[in-house]
Amino acid sequence: MDLDASLSGETLVVRLYGELDLRVSDNLRPRLDKELDRQRVKHLLFNLRGVDFIDSSGIGFILGRYKKVKAQGGTVALAGPNRSVHRILDLSGMYKVMSGFANESEALKALEGGKQG
């Protein structure tokens, strides 16, 4: 299993596992888009704890979903990347458009807390 998605409030929490490269992102893209369309999703949270590699294909995959969610007025957050994944995210400017969190619960608190405030 390389993707596991569950709804928490208005946030779709997506836990990714393995190596986010060309093969994996091609495979995940239609599956995640189906989840995004199926559920009443506002925000998207990627839990990257289980990801041990990412390259430009993985970056493109995340950014593509970001555009989709953003267009519908939601936000996207990234949680729990390891050191090397974090470095690639940083270099590609991902943290300029979405916020990063140390773990899933911190990210959820920020995303779900935002709507009351």
Partner: peptide, 13 residues
């Protein structure tokens, strides 16, 4: 269209 154009940037850096 769905690509970022990051590949060569990563190779270079």
């Amino acid at each position: 269209p769905e690509r970022m154009g990051m590949g060569f940037v990563f190779m270079k850096s």
